[in-house]
């Protein structure tokens, strides 16, 4: 039973990080219709700036700097590249972000070289023992930060003008434009939020507790689970991203504990395929309407 509780806490802690990634991913998709393959490179970008500055500036300032860079990086990509082709077809835009991802990832990995620097000094590798259950601080903090950020996001999404505009735009991009919603601004904001969330996620990803590995190509690969998480929830559903993140985190933790570590990565995708076969647009996604 104790193992089970521990596995659940770890799974939810991981799930919180995945939810942040998936949420950013979904926001970008909702606002601009882009399946952002560059999400993993936003993660690396934020992480890279944070590790390069943490010795001089301390963890907190470097973390803020990393998060900000990831947000600005995303904004730059949106303004300079994606915004040039607002009506291009989704596959073209997805491929465009693949191009960005390849360049950004290769350059950061090259700069890192053989180093695998860790993030999260204040909390990483300091487990808390409660009876015979070990809680990892990284997971607990991720859960807390995730909860706060997600709550903030949903408040903003419901209450601010940006949230309303964003939802209107996701419903119907042309109509929203006619109603005077400034598409550019809504979309740009969505990319910034996506980048920021990726920048926050990396603070937990590149840790001993989470992945056992520092910032590397592996971090980029872990960030890819934003895909199954977002797809399970439904690519255009923000709530779905949270649920999808939790499902992915739990699936991974449970299958690693009860089946095998190697199987845990596949398990996530098996769950995703099962969901897709039953509901081709994910659990909460809008079903594609066929136009006749």
């Amino acid at each position: 039973m104790n193992t089970f509780i521990q596995v659940m806490v770890n799974g939810l802690g991981k799930g919180a990080v995945y939810a942040l990634l998936a949420l950013g991913f979904v926001i970008i998709f909702k606002a601009s219709g882009v399946l952002n393959f560059a999400h993993g490179s936003f993660v690396l970008l934020g992480g890279y700036v944070a590790v390069r500055t943490q010795d001089d500036l301390g963890f907190t300032v470097s973390a803020i700097l990393g998060v900000a860079t990831a947000g600005l990086g995303a904004l730059f990509i949106e303004r300079v590249l994606v915004a040039r082709r607002p009506l291009a077809d989704p596959i073209a835009l997805a491929l465009l972000t693949i191009g960005v991802d390849v360049i950004l990832t290769e350059e950061i990995i090259r700069r890192l070289g053989v180093e695998l620097p860790f993030l999260g000094r204040p909390y990483d590798g300091k487990p808390i023992q409660v009876g015979d259950i070990t809680f990892f601080r990284t997971q607990l903090i991720a859960l807390a930060v995730g909860a706060v950020l997600v709550t903030l996001f949903f408040l903003a999404f419901r209450l601010t003008g940006w949230g309303v505009a964003m939802r209107a735009q996701a419903e119907n991009r042309e109509a929203a434009a006619l109603m005077g919603i400034r598409r550019g601004r809504v979309t740009a904001a969505a990319w910034v939020i996506g980048g920021v969330l990726a920048g926050v996620a990396v603070l937990f990803l590149a840790t001993q507790d989470f992945s056992g590995s520092g910032l590397s190509r592996g971090t980029h690969a872990i960030a890819l689970v934003a895909f199954p998480a977002a797809i399970i929830g439904g690519l255009d559903s923000t709530e779905g991203a949270i649920v999808g993140g939790a499902i992915v985190g739990l699936t991974e933790a449970l299958s690693a504990q009860y089946i095998s570590f190697e199987f845990s990565k596949v398990a996530v995708y098996v769950v995703m395929l099962t969901v897709l076969i039953v509901r081709p647009s994910g659990l909460f996604g809008t079903r594609e309407r066929t136009r006749v």
């Binding site: 399946l35 890819l224 895909f227 199954p228 596949v266 995708y269 098996v270 395929l273 897709l276 076969i277």
Partner: peptide, 21 residues
Amino acid sequence: GRVRGVYLGVATLALVYVGLY
């Protein structure tokens, strides 16, 4: 046959993991 567009792109990613495993 059922999953379309970008959803299919991600669905196929699953096979890479299956092959690896």
